[in-house]
Write a protein that binds this DNA or RNA. Structure first.
Length: 276
DNA sequence: ATGCGCCTGGGA
DNA sequence: TCCCAGGCGCAT
């Protein structure tokens, strides 16, 4: 599913065709919740004629700043895809929205499960969103002191749900949270307040390394094939996963069978021997 | 802290 | 046919 590396890869794939383009039309907007709280009509009225000035990412949001100080934010949720095509490429049954551009490209938002959202935010609304999100794990401000401070703020919380909390840290989802905890040798049920400084440093490093490697591999495309970027390309990180989806297989570290357990309502994959 | 709803396709 | 996948907001 799209987590930070997949969203980053998707944003990068738009870098060539989007900046500087002007929206000349909106099509295929037949599922109104996609652009809530605006109505499709108001969304179209607000978008047509606007120029997309750049492409960015914050947490799991793709950011498309416009020339009027508004920002179009795109959240792919579970099954969304965002890509540009030559202007005449037809929609399919899962296309939720097409922005026609003045450079003979079109921006397609395709989303099988309809959870994804495109929101047009004022500068103040975007600032409010930004302030609700935790630090960027690959940003310069994220170091072990910051992580330690944030862990101390929730001493009784279990690590796994904490890593999934976007207010705690931005961008991790189920796959990379499990992989980070495995690399750090930390059990998903460990309470945040019990970590030593050395363990905190290990966790920070594990998170940064997993995310960086996954970005280089252009994300994780599982066998269900949901996530793809650009012109339908899969990411290559699935083969590098060490625990996610590997229940019952042997731990790559110690050979013990890997376990799966529901924690905080989500399946968690870990090695009961290596992760303490 | 936990559970549900939002959705759909794919697998058991 | 049922159930599961899970990001996120919301209710309990």
């Amino acid at each position: 599913m799209p987590e930070l590396p997949e969203v980053e890869t998707t944003a990068r794939s738009l870098q060539r065709s989007l900046p500087g383009s002007k929206v000349i039309g909106v099509r295929e907007l037949d599922y109104a919740p996609t652009v809530e709280p605006l109505s499709p009509k108001d969304f179209i009225k607000a978008m047509v004629g606007r120029q997309i000035t750049s492409v960015g990412r914050r947490a799991k949001y793709i950011l498309l700043p416009l020339d009027n100080d508004h920002t179009l934010t795109v959240h792919l949720r579970m099954s969304g895809r965002l890509f540009t095509t030559p202007a005449e490429t037809p929609a399919d049954r899962h296309t939720r929205l097409i922005l026609d551009l003045d450079n003979y490209y079109a921006l397609h938002f395709r989303d099988v499960r309809k959870f994804g959202r495109m929101q047009l935010l004022t500068a103040a609304e975007y600032a409010a969103l930004d302030s609700r999100l935790g630090p960027e794990p690959l940003g310069t401000g994220f170091n072990s002191a910051v992580l330690a401070e944030r862990l101390q703020a929730h001493p009784r919380a279990r690590l796994k749900p904490l890593l999934l909390d976007q207010q705690f840290l931005a961008g991790l989802g189920n796959i990379y949270a499990d992989e980070s905890l495995f690399r750090a040798g930390l059990h998903p049920l460990r309470q945040a307040g019990t970590l030593s400084m050395e363990e905190i440093q290990r966790l920070r490093l594990a998170i940064c390394e997993v995310l960086s490697e996954a970005i280089i591999a252009e994300g994780t495309t599982l066998s269900n094939g949901v996530y793809r970027f650009g012109q339908d390309q899969p990411g290559r990180f699935a083969e590098r996963l060490q625990v996610y989806g590997h229940e019952g297989k042997t731990c790559p570290q110690c050979g013990e069978p890997l376990q799966r357990q529901i924690i905080g309502g989500r399946s968690s994959h870990f090695c009961p021997a290596c992760q303490v």
